[in-house]
Design a protein around this nucleic acid. Structure first.
Length: 292
DNA sequence: CCACAGGACGGCT
DNA sequence: AGCCGTCCTGTG
């Protein structure tokens, strides 16, 4: 997709950016590292950088970057090459639930995040709630990440594989991850040892990549699908959590259908758009707390 | 004090 | 293969 990018003081503007609503991008449960500021902008740490993102009318302001860095990092991270108008219209034709969900979540984009950070973040997400996940990830970064400063505040990058592979279970527990501490340590060791070649899975194909991820400690079907969708560009992934389970059982299938069958159904119904469908549905039902 | 939220795992059938 | 109790850290 073609955009007009304008340089400003210590930042850039994407002029006339469509389908980019920061609130929906950062609060739809795909990333745990972006926080809302008083002015409605979001400051976050990703790909070893700090940035601040704000929408003003049809323009997206990204501060603490420049045009070269935008082209190198943020263009891909924010999935700016993808046509979300087309996705929404394909999903909405002949589907009333997705008509409502895509309208509600208008401006959601699926981020292209780092594989390692996404893997550990979603191991922490198992049987956990978003504020707790954010708190735990933040503590892990403060303890083992590298400091970066922006606007007189210190931010911390997500730690290297070796840092968590060398961490103590007790140190991880102090970050509030509970029973997941041993999974994080074990998975970090497995990735460090090359038992799973994490950074090769993007090109391995969905089935193979998913099977490899599930070998890791604390990674089951749902966590694997989140990693595949949010960091490896597998848009055919259809992660089924409790919210998606509810909406699929209630509106598409039957109340007693298993998680595995819901996933298969989502993938066959939506194909390469399954991940996008899942994200619109998840955000819609969760924001409405199930009152749909 | 108790009920509840939220996926992976391991033991059971 | 499918079911279910347990794991932890909170909030209401």
């Amino acid at each position: 997709m073609k955009y007009n990018i304008r340089k400003i003081d210590r930042g850039i503007v994407i002029e006339g950016a469509r389908d980019f609503e920061p609130k929906h991008v950062f609060e739809c449960g795909q990333s745990f590292r972006w926080d809302r500021e008083n002015d409605g902008s979001y400051t976050g740490i990703a790909m070893g950088k700090v940035a601040n993102v704000k929408r003003e009318g049809a323009d997206i302001f990204i501060r603490n970057t420049d045009i070269d860095e935008f082209n190198e990092i943020w263009y891909g991270y924010f999935d700016l090459d993808r046509d979300y108008e087309k996705i929404k219209s394909e999903l909405s034709s002949d589907d009333d639930m997705l008509k409502k969900a895509t309208k509600f979540g208008d401006g959601i984009r699926i981020l292209n995040q780092d594989e390692w950070e996404t893997l550990i973040s979603f191991i922490i997400s198992a049987n956990n709630r978003i504020p707790m996940i954010k708190r735990s990830v933040s503590r892990i970064c403060e303890r083992w990440g590298k400091p970066l400063s922006y606007n007189d505040r210190t931010y911390y990058t997500f730690p290297e594989i070796e840092k968590l592979a060398g961490a103590g279970i007790d140190e991880l527990e102090q970050c509030g991850v509970g029973f997941r501490a041993k999974y994080i340590k074990e998975t970090a060791l497995m990735v460090q040892n090359g038992d799973v070649n994490l950074y090769e899975l993007k090109n391995a194909g969905y089935d193979k990549a998913r099977a490899e991820l599930i070998k890791l400690a604390g990674v089951g079907p749902k966590v694997a699908d989140c990693v595949l969708l949010f960091s490896m560009d597998y848009s055919e992934a259809f992660p089924v959590d409790v919210w998606v389970k509810r909406i699929m059982q209630q509106f598409y299938l039957a109340p007693d259908v298993s998680l595995a069958k819901i996933e298969k159904y989502g993938q066959s119904k939506f194909g390469k758009l399954a991940g996008f469908a899942q994200q619109y549905l998840f955000y819609y039902i969760r924001e409405l707390k199930g009152n749909i």
